[in-house]
């Protein structure tokens, strides 16, 4: 009588692995049945403590697994390609060594951790306005007009066409990750070609010009829980008629959070507006 001991013989294990692969082409119930028949045959045919030569002879008489499967397939219904591919993959997985499973588990863990990290980055809150904003240049600051209508605040200064104008605002990072300001989103500022820079930590803030003395850089990091000053400068190029105004209610920054680059729309407490008539050099009308 045969026992499971014979099934552990390396030659038999190898034969059954090959058979599993070859049987992937068959409908599963046919494959399982033939696998059981061949296993039972080997349990009966291989005596206990059989030598490698004896086992090899028995396996040789049984015939190559591929031929066996082909013989069985001749009477079986054809399988859908997908089903065959899935079964073949299953057979390959079953014959994988434990090292392969460990490797696969490590890869799966890394992927899961990576996916979790990406989700954290994707859902992290972005930079938001702090408690300070204003016009960069004293000439504008001194001429600003603050208005409020329907709970919407607005600060307006005369446009100085062809000259540098700018605004600053304090931003905070409410997330658990360092966020890096990379630049302005295209089309974010309608007054002219604008550039954005971010201050070094804790700049001295003095309305109307002193803040401009701080050191600025781009790209620049804003660590979790910290504040930075964001300065936006442009050379005003619009041509505004008397009484006309152009303004912004938000600023869009490109911000990197971990592995992701996102567009951060910062809603401003007060809209920044330029009003006509234009004086100096202007090129385009809004």
């Amino acid at each position: 009588m045969g026992t499971r001991t014979q099934q552990r013989h390396p030659l038999i294990r190898g034969y059954l692995r090959e058979l599993d692969l070859a049987l992937a082409e068959l409908p599963s119930e046919k494959a399982v049945e033939l696998r059981q028949q061949i296993t039972a045959h080997l349990q009966d045919a291989v005596p206990p403590r059989a030598s490698a030569d004896e086992v090899a002879t028995i396996l040789g008489r049984l015939g190559p697994p591929g031929e066996l499967a082909a013989d069985a397939a001749a009477g079986a219904a054809p399988q859908a390609r997908t089903a065959v591919a899935v079964r073949r993959l299953g057979a390959r997985l079953r014959r994988a060594r434990w090292q392969s499973w460990v490797l696969a588990a490590i890869v799966a863990l890394v992927l899961a951790a990576g996916a979790g990290r990406v989700i954290q980055f994707a859902t992290a809150p972005l930079l938001q306005q702090g408690d300070t904003d204003g016009w960069v240049y004293a000439r504008d600051y001194n001429r600003e007009v603050d208005t409020q209508a329907d709970e919407a605040q607005q600060t307006t200064v005369p446009i100085r066409s062809g000259q540098l104008q700018g605004l600053y605002l304090n931003v905070s990072n409410p997330s658990d990750f360092t966020e890096t300001v990379l630049g302005l989103a295209p089309g974010s500022i309608p007054f002219g070609n604008a550039v954005v820079r971010v201050s070094e930590p804790n700049p001295e803030i003095d309305f109307g010009g002193a803040v401009a003395n701080a050191r600025y850089a781009l790209p620049e990091n804003v660590p979790p829980g910290q504040f930075r000053m964001v300065e936006v400068l442009w050379r005003s190029s619009l041509c505004l008629a008397k009484g006309a105004q152009v303004g912004i209610q938000q600023i869009q920054l490109r911000v990197r959070v971990g592995w992701l680059v996102k567009t951060d729309t910062i809603r401003l407490f007060a809209g920044f507006y330029l009003s006509g008539p234009s004086q100096g050099t202007c090129r385009s009308r809004p």
Partner: peptide, 24 residues
């Protein structure tokens, strides 16, 4: 049973090319 059939068939010379073909 399977192996019994295989052995009986194999006893007739030239009838069985390989034992495995009996099962399909």
């Amino acid at each position: 049973f399977g192996l019994e059939l295989v052995r009986d068939l194999a006893a007739s010379d030239g009838l069985l090319t390989s034992d495995g073909t009996v099962y399909p």
